[in-house]
Design a protein around this nucleic acid. Structure first.
Lengths: 210, 210
DNA sequence: AGCACAAGTAACTAAATGGTGCATTGCGCG
DNA sequence: CGCGCAATGCACCATTTAGTTACTTGTGCT
């Protein structure tokens, strides 16, 4: 039985601390830039534990990616979009995507890193594929219901729409530094963020409108 | 006077080879992942030359970024969008942006790397700021002419539209690996690319339509 | 109580890495 | 034609890095 007292040895807790620290470091510096020693220190764990639980640096990166993707896909499912009218569901999805990126900036840089390495760290994960399929199905169902209700036009590809919904939020945030510097306009004030979200909702609703 | 015979010593040529090799390596592995020795070897130059001409690794990265950004901004200006009817100009711009990303995949990963490091390598470059301002002005002018001609609605923010045009192409391509794996759909077949471009043109034209 | 094994630690290593000191060589100019 | 300097090359260094070896210690179970 699991006792309530704080154990000095706790495999699960140590693993979790390592994963959390690794997520931060990989997000901050990329796979190539992150340092195993630094991750161990931030995790308040011995470096040996990283190799004990995760094998090596690349496998740790894989674990971090899987954890990050699963988190967003789980949160998306919890929206229960099927229970909303289609147009309302669409706006909810756009807002959710935007807010998730804002609240989890590490997700974006992790995905960038995964793609810098041609996605090879994602290949093994069937869990992620399943979750992704379900996600697209949710959007497809939103679209179908919208067409039936006469609020969306027909013939929209759910895959393309999904990409676009992600893109217009993701790009703004991932490239906010170059944008802020080159276009001399602060991307991260509350006003700027509100404006962008409004622009994005408007964009998608124009794209799907009947 | 510049002689035509191949010189065994040519500062400009050496610098250019280093810059080209560095662009490839930084694009491939990021700032943290790229190796100075590897860059020197690919450039067929001695490592010493990198430090001689560029100072250090970070300054080399800065030079690469500046070169990459200047290239796309220059190419954009050469489109001469002012000479086209506004709707045609808009489609031309969307296509150009897409084709540029496709033809220069290194541009995307370099921009990602620049932003991973919070854009600090871009800060010094006034050249880039000037070029960026001119670029936004071009889009604004397209929009203005379109409103005047009655083909675009008024009140569209040129900055937001610019971001969206870039985003819907950029995101698709930068995340093509994770997309291909997770959504089990090849992002890079000719058909897939054509479909995406068509979807993007359609998206933007719906957004700007009067 | 004490056994067996998992959790945890410290010190180490071999290789890689960014960066330099210093000597050499070819080019352009007077 | 030979001088001065920029261009180039080689060997080297001090750190850093991912990964490992060999060990100790706490926990749950009987």
């Amino acid at each position: 039985m699991q006792s309530t007292k704080a154990r000095t040895r706790d495999a699960e807790a140590t693993k979790a601390r390592i994963l959390a620290a690794a997520k931060i470091e990989f997000a901050r510096l990329g796979l190539g830039g992150a340092r195993v020693d630094e991750i161990a220190e931030k995790a308040e764990a011995n470096k040996r534990m990283i190799y004990h639980y995760f094998g090596n640096k690349e496998d740790l990166f894989t674990a971090v990616l899987e954890d990050a993707y699963l988190d967003i896909r789980t949160a998306e499912q919890e929206l229960q979009l099927d229970e909303l009218p289609p147009d309302e569901g669409m706006v909810t999805l756009i807002k959710f995507t935007w807010d998730y990126y804002l609240d989890h900036p590490e997700f974006i840089t992790l995905v960038n890193s995964a793609n810098l390495h041609k996605g090879k760290h994602l290949e093994k994960s069937d869990k992620l594929k399943t979750a992704s399929r379900r996600y697209i199905a949710t959007i497809q169902s939103l679209l179908d219901r919208g067409v039936e209700a006469g609020v969306f036009r027909s013939g929209i590809d759910a895959g393309q729409l999904n990409i676009t919904i992600a893109a217009i939020g993701y790009y703004y945030l991932t490239n906010r530094f170059s944008g802020t510097i080159l276009f001399e306009r602060d991307y991260m004030t509350k006003e700027a963020l509100d404006n962008r979200l409004a622009f994005n909702i408007d964009t998608i609703m124009r794209v799907v409108a009947a």
